[in-house]
Structures are given as C-alpha cells and as structure tokens.
C-alpha cells in the first residue's frame, strides 16, 4: 500500500455512513476506503455513531407475530445471494468491478481529444462518475467547478498548482477551486472523478464540447 496523503473529510465520511449521498459519491468513497486503512477506520467510527443513534432511538412496536414472520423469512434463505468475492490481482479497486470491470483493460474508453480519454460509469442521475485517462505529461482542460468534484488517483499521479496526488490520493474540490491538473511525466494517469454538477471550462472550445462529453 502506497503512502496516501490526501484523505476523505469528516463531512463526506459522515454522509457516506448516514447513507445520504448519491451513488456516484458512494462509489468513489468506497473505492478510496478500499485503498486506505486510515479512512476505513474513520468510516467504522462514523458507523459507530450511527449505531449509537440507533440505540438512542425511541422504539416503535413491531406488529403482532413479527418475530414468527421473520423466522419464516429466514427459513426461505437469503434474499440476495451473499457475495464473497475472491481475492484476485485486479488493477481496479473492488467497488468499481460492477461498474467498469475488474481491470483497466476492461474499460471502454472514448477519446475526448488531446490524448485524454474517458469512460462514463452508469450510476444514479444525481451525480456523475467517470474514469479519466490522461497521458503522461498532459494537462486536463483548465476548469473550475460549479459543485463538488472528487478525484481519486488509481494509477500514476497528477499535480496542480498547489499539490501532488499519487495512487490512492483523493482530491476534494469545490466551486472555489480553479485549477489545471497535469499528469506527471513518468506514467499515464488514470483517475476516477465524480461531480455533482457540470464542470465549467474556462476556454471556449471545451465549453462547446461540454454537452457531448457530459463532463
């Protein structure tokens, strides 16, 4: 496990634990936690807060015969098969398997120009998740944000004006962040990026392309 320097914040972890975020955000948070034991421990702590809230909740009486009905339900077996995924060497974190495949080779990329490729993942419509492929040394289009954007590095690294993000690092950017991420020169960079609003591009051309790219 590489040294992860950029982590989830409490706000996102609490919302993940409470279960109030859009699917795309749950996906990127689950992917980061799969790579980061520090955030995994923090997630369990916020789950413990949820457990305490549950314990303190006033009770609502169950229906008559509820226990017997539940035992009958148990007798029918699990509603969904209980998945135990075998440990394999996969280049993508496990939460992404259902969305993008197990390996980077499975990803269906579409070129968006200047060597940059993307693959939009199918999640609920309240936010967008996509994989981004940025050739070594290339820049992402200069952009600011209308809403919240999270970017998780899966392979390689990128730098912006302020910082360096390597594999497992998660960048949290809101409308106040205006930056130009550049993939480092040594390796192509692959990221998972999630937004809850469309990006606003600074130059004219990407803005025209925006409806087609869905970014």
């Amino acid at each position: 496990m590489t040294q992860i320097k950029h982590h989830l914040n409490d706000q996102l972890l609490m919302a993940y634990s409470a279960g109030t975020l859009p699917e795309a955000f749950n996906l990127i948070i689950a992917a980061h936690i799969s790579m980061c034991d520090e955030c995994r421990a923090r997630m369990h702590s916020f789950d413990a807060v949820g457990g305490a809230v549950l314990e303190e909740t006033s009770e609502v009486q169950m229906s008559d015969g509820s226990l017997e009905a539940t035992l009958a339900l148990i007798g029918k077996g699990p509603k969904d098969p209980i998945k135990v995924l075998e440990k394999t060497s996969s280049s993508l974190p496990q939460p992404l398997w259902d969305y993008a495949g197990r390996d980077l080779a499975d990803v269906r990329w579409r070129s968006v120009g200047m060597g940059v490729k993307q693959s939009i993942l199918k999640t609920s419509k309240d936010a967008t998740a996509r994989l981004l492929y940025i050739p070594a040394g290339s820049a992402m289009p200069d952009h600011g944000h209308n809403g919240l954007e999270l970017t998780l590095v899966l392979q390689g690294a990128f730098e912006d004006e302020d910082d360096y993000f390597g594999a497992g690092d998660l960048e949290i950017a809101d409308q106040h962040v205006h930056h130009t991420p550049v993939a480092t020169i040594d390796q192509d960079c692959i990221c998972l990026a999630v937004t809850d609003a469309k990006l606003k591009f600074s130059s004219l051309v990407p803005r025209i392309a925006q409806p087609f790219l869905r970014i």
């Binding site: 279960g19 859009p22 699917e23 749950n26 996906l27 689950a30 992917a31 936690i33 799969s34 995994r40 997630m43 995924l85 974190p93 496990q94 939460p95 259902d98 969305y99 609920s124």
Partner: peptide, 8 residues
C-alpha cells in the same frame, strides 16, 4: 439506489 461498499 445501489450502495457501493469498500472491499471487505
């Protein structure tokens, strides 16, 4: 909605 969970 589905809820993606971290790798166990």
């Amino acid at each position: 909605q589905r809820r993606p969970e971290p790798e166990d």
